[in-house]
């Protein structure tokens, strides 16, 4: 059936579009922000502020 042939092409096209979006945004983000800023996340940061693990 022709609709399934069309669906195959549409799936390839949509996959390519999503891939292009992700890669473009990744490159833009990496060039716009410093590495220090991007990797500034620290484990347990919120916990250090709100939950001191005291009983």
């Amino acid at each position: 059936m022709q609709i399934w042939d069309f669906a195959e092409y549409a799936a390839w096209a949509l996959s390519a579009l999503l891939g292009i979006y992700i890669v473009t945004d990744w490159l833009k983000t990496d060039s716009r922000y410093s590495e220090e800023e991007l990797t500034s996340s620290r484990e347990g940061q919120l916990e250090a502020i709100t939950e001191q693990h005291e009983l």
Partner: peptide, 15 residues
């Protein structure tokens, strides 16, 4: 194409 689309769509959503 449907295997690739499933992975790309969900990766995009997670991104």
């Amino acid at each position: 194409p449907f295997i690739v689309l499933a992975i790309m769509f969900l990766a995009w959503l997670n991104y």
